[in-house]
Design a protein around this nucleic acid. Structure first.
Lengths: 197, 197
DNA sequence: TCATTTCTGTAGTGGTCGCTAAATAATGCC
DNA sequence: GGCATTATTTAGCGACCACTACAGAAATGA
């Protein structure tokens, strides 16, 4: 945990978490390249030197916002109970989160993938790793389900994990395109029909 | 069709289609915002005034590149035969196209969604419409299959269309993240298990 | 040959990008 | 109060952005 020295000089005039939240929304909505420092100034009410003093650069600001997103708005695969229910819950939760009113549509991590593309190597690394970890998490959960007999022995856990991952990523695109919560839930329901039986 | 006046002054020193192809690859790989006019100059070997003379602006250049992408690299749903085979073919073709060596990974239209996000309204309109048309095309195909008895009467064609659309969009993300052709085909195969029976 | 038309290359335009030096303001410590 | 320390504000840095005025080059028509 980062310990803050009990302050000698002039104190901060802003709440760091609140600022980070505004920054997160800006990046979430407009992407990394689409969000300028001027945009961040407008979103936070701060001037550039304050932002650069509290954080370090636009890039680390993005990373911090991304971590906050994962912490506050990320889904986790429930580790107990039947895998089928865990995955189903996961998809429905994504459908709800991606269509939350008052928040930008879609998933900040999925969006980053494409907004940053093959370029912006430095800043794109972290969200790419997050997506990879999500896929690995799903796959591990499915493997366990196979050994426990919940899924047939011949099940291709990797392919199935990629499928559910793709459903999440596709839901994010469609949320950005204006899909309603109801439509996303229908999508999640249809996806669960791919569950092996 | 655009008729070209039989040329009085100095002739073009470049092939317009070849240049458009290079431009398309640049936008495909780096997105709209990530591709600067300097990038396009390097990709085409032309100077800015030539590009602006032949086309009109970065934005219409992007639109032209997008249309070329749809024409040369877009998938179409085969209109005849069983819907199940048409969809299956569609998914496998996407898996192959998104992992074509010598071309940027993923789908230019899906990528545009996220790279442009909610902002860049003007330039994002066309790719958003393309995605919407793809979904509508799939849904229509499924509706026909229902009336013809290939699918159960109670099938939710909209939800199923959204699912297969999401699979395409998710495959694009995973292709950008480095998924192999084999992995994408496995994903397509797993997705077809969601076909109602 | 000369005039006309069209394209190409040079060399910029004003604007925005991420970022920061320097001055000023607000605190704690003595 | 005076000093050290830290935060905020003002103003502006060089680099790059999309784009273009202008002059020269290459074609056709007379």
């Amino acid at each position: 945990m980062e310990m803050r020295k009990p302050s000698r000089g002039r104190p901060r005039s802003f709440d760091e978490e609140a600022v980070l939240d505004a920054v997160m929304r800006a990046f979430w909505e407009h992407g990394y390249e689409g969000t300028s420092v001027a945009t961040l100034e407008a979103a936070t009410g701060l001037k550039a030197p304050s932002l650069y003093g509290a954080f370090g650069s636009k890039e680390v600001l993005y990373q911090a916002a991304l971590e906050r997103y994962a912490r506050e708005h990320g889904n986790v695969l429930r580790p107990d109970g039947p895998a089928r229910e865990a995955i189903s819950e996961f998809l429905y939760e994504a459908a709800d989160r991606f269509s939350e009113s008052g928040l930008p549509p879609g998933c900040m991590v999925s969006t980053a993938a494409l907004a940053l593309g093959t370029a912006q190597r430095g800043v794109a690394t972290r969200p790419a790793k997050m997506r990879s970890e999500t896929l690995a998490g799903i796959e591990q959960r499915l493997r366990t389900a196979i050994t426990e007999g919940e899924l047939p022995a011949g099940t291709d856990a990797g392919a199935l994990a990629r499928l559910f991952g793709a459903v999440i990523q596709g839901m994010s695109v469609q949320a950005i395109d204006g899909a309603t919560r109801q439509e996303l839930r229908g999508l999640a329901k249809a996806a669960m029909d791919a569950w092996p039986r």
